[in-house]
């Protein structure tokens, strides 16, 4: 019997597979300010003991006010920042292990707020191919990946175009394709729609959802638009560097007052349902979609 089939190895493999693709344990990050003599003058704790466990294939939304620490957490997930305390594992790779940094970044890709800062080439297909090219992948394989990635985000028709001539939503989809071409298992998006118009916003969210459903990509979406999170499997609410709320969109958005205290809100349809409940209409808590509200109101008629 070869050692690959040894029961212990099989057992350990099972254990590893059952663990989340993204895990943090007591994650702490402190911004340390020093004066010209290298003396520490101020320490501020942006992330304060965060435990997360995100399963492969999950769609997790992260909400939190400006300065709550959510972007700082995100930057740990592809080793742009190293924890000052606690540990982050991406597919069981400790992000502090410098030898693994490229494997980690290929596993968990990142998309940022401003599409213009992420586009580097003057032709869409070259921009998408930049990542795999940098990884030293043979050119035939690169083109295959570029094809597939542009298909996946619905931008195949634009491959020969200049990114500068695209709309904000299209640029952001090209940026996502660029990450997809590195074949990640997980994509972390830090406010990808903040600078987009309504249709651009819808395009990007639809793309992200499809990557999650069709390709099984794990998605971690940070946003200030509550309605973008109603399809998530789970929502984490971060405040003062800690996870303050956690649950399904229905569970989280049922707590309208609590969210307001945390400088957040609920989708407009949820707010309307909440206001109608306060007026005495017998509606259930946590209505998230227009369809749900319409059905419930029809029942009252």
């Amino acid at each position: 019997m070869g050692h690959r089939d040894c029961p212990l190895v099989l057992f350990l493999r099972k254990v590893v597979e059952s663990m989340g693709i993204v895990r943090t344990a007591k994650l702490v990050y402190e911004y340390i300010r020093k004066d010209e003599n290298d003396k520490v003058t101020e320490i501020s704790r942006a992330v304060d003991g965060v435990d997360m466990d995100i399963r492969e294939g999950e769609f997790v939304a992260v909400l939190g006010r400006n300065g709550s620490g959510k972007s700082t957490i995100a930057k740990h997930l592809n080793a742009l920042l190293q924890p000052t305390g606690g540990t982050v594992w991406i597919r069981e790779m400790d992000t502090r292990d410098e030898d693994l940094i490229w494997d980690i970044r290929q596993t968990a890709g990142m998309v940022f707020q401003n599409p213009d800062n992420q586009i580097i080439s003057s032709v869409v297909e070259e921009d998408v191919g930049f990542g795999p090219e940098n990884m030293g992948i043979p050119s035939e394989e690169i083109w295959k990946r570029v094809d597939e990635s542009l298909q996946a985000v619905g931008m195949a028709a634009y491959r020969k175009r200049s990114p500068n001539r695209l709309s904000g939503g299209q640029k952001q989809r090209v940026a996502i394709a660029g990450v997809m071409a590195m074949r990640p298992r997980c994509i972390v998006l830090d406010e990808p729609t903040a600078m987009l118009d309504p249709v651009g916003r819808r395009e990007v969210i639809k793309t992200v959802r499809e990557l999650n459903r069709k390709e099984g990509i794990t998605v971690i979406l940070i946003t200030h638009y509550m309605e973008e999170t109603v399809d998530a499997d789970r929502i984490l609410v971060v405040d003062a560097g800690k996870v303050k709320m956690e649950g399904t969109p229905k569970e989280v958005f049922s707590q309208v007052e609590r969210l307001r205290e945390l400088h957040l809100g609920v989708p407009q349809v949820t707010e309307l349902a909440y206001e109608l409940r306060k007026e005495g209409l017998p509606l259930p808590e946590g209505i998230l979609t227009i369809q749900e509200l319409v059905d419930e109101l029809c029942r009252l008629k």
């Binding site: 709309s167 118009d197 309504p198 309605e227 407009q268 349809v269 309307l272 227009i290 109101l297």
Partner: peptide, 22 residues
Amino acid sequence: ESYGLSAPQVTYIAHALREKGI
């Protein structure tokens, strides 16, 4: 929508309710 814009969510709710006869 054809201009890349939209209406507030509540406007869509109102239209959906009217279609249902409310």
